[in-house]
Design a binder for these strands. Structure first.
Lengths: 178, 178
DNA sequence: CCTGAAATTCAACGCTTGTTGACTTAAGAA
DNA sequence: TTCTTAAGTCAACAAGCGTTGAATTTCAGG
């Protein structure tokens, strides 16, 4: 049973790494199994099917402590959206959302898990909807331009400088008065 | 030959509508052919292969008049990024970029066609890189939140009000002084 | 009407996908 | 050691994919 738990976790880890980075429909079970060094058939044994494996990777992924102040919100969003890859299997939540936005079913699944959390957090900490919109636009736009559309050169590529500029933008957006 | 041109165009139109909206790897040639009311084999006859058909949908898609002033830039970006669907086959360029961002090959193809245009336009009209970054973040973020991540409620859903708010954000971003 | 070229249809190919069920190996309990 | 159950392996399946080449229809020119 110890061994089974081990392979279960290996599958889960590599599934999260691959699917979150490249998208649900762009990663095959055989790829995941090969990366984990186990047989494909074990996916169906331990998680039922591909969907089950993916849903397992979402469990607890959006759990964050509640935020009250604007500073806490900035910190939470930076942690949530900017990837600080600890290893090859670490991918930001924004990547997850974007990579699966096109798939109707999977996209809805992801959104259902995080939308309420993020949206209410932003609205609560900012106080009004216009500032929340500006805030979301700033954080989303920077991340999307940099990470997904590969619009290099628009934002500085150096991670430290990037994060610094990001924080500055977020703070400005929060202070915005229409 | 008239008939051949007709089916060529039918294929192209439905290919653009489907691939731009759902992404290159999420649409099959059989789907496109069925939507166009044409046999699948005609894709290879008229466009060589799937890639050729997709590349044909990109031709001229990023042609825009050169912009000089900030106002012209705002107008160009709004036209380019905000979809005003005239019919079911009309999809915004942003959708195209996002839906194919995950596919390495296709994503590079799309970027190569539009990146230089947009980036130089923004940098030219704004004058410095920081304002360009803020501008891009604003436009990208609003569109992504609304259209791709379906973060409804953050921005007003009414099209007129949405576009009004978008223009306001863009103008503010252009006027930003670090 | 007849002919020949263009336009379209059809069936098949090799490949990959998710999923399944039967088989083999591993390992702890009696 | 033997037995039993868990864990892992293997081959095959049905379905869908892009692509191809031969057969068939369409249709204007002589």
């Amino acid at each position: 049973m110890n061994k089974a738990l081990n392979t279960r976790e290996k599958l889960l880890t590599h599934a999260r790494a691959l699917i979150w980075r490249h998208g649900y429909s762009n990663v095959s079970l055989r790829q995941i199994a090969a990366a984990a060094g186990v047989d494909v058939a074990l996916v169906s044994r331990y998680y039922g099917n591909k969907r089950g494996l993916f849903e397992a990777t979402l469990e607890g992924a959006f759990d964050t402590p509640p935020v009250e102040t604007a500073e806490e919100l900035v910190e939470m969003v930076v942690q949530l959206f900017v990837s600080h890859p600890r290893d090859a299997t670490d991918v930001s939540v924004l990547h997850l959302m974007l990579m699966n936005a096109q798939d109707e079913e999977v996209g809805n699944l992801v959104r259902k898990q995080q939308q309420a959390l993020l949206q209410t957090a932003v609205e609560h900490a900012t106080g009004d909807q216009t500032r929340a919109a500006l805030f979301m636009a700033a954080i989303l736009g920077m991340s999307v331009a940099e990470k997904s559309l590969h619009l290099k050169g628009i934002a500085p590529y150096d991670t430290v400088e990037y994060e610094k500029q990001l924080r500055h933008m977020l703070t400005s957006a929060l202070a915005y008065q229409p």
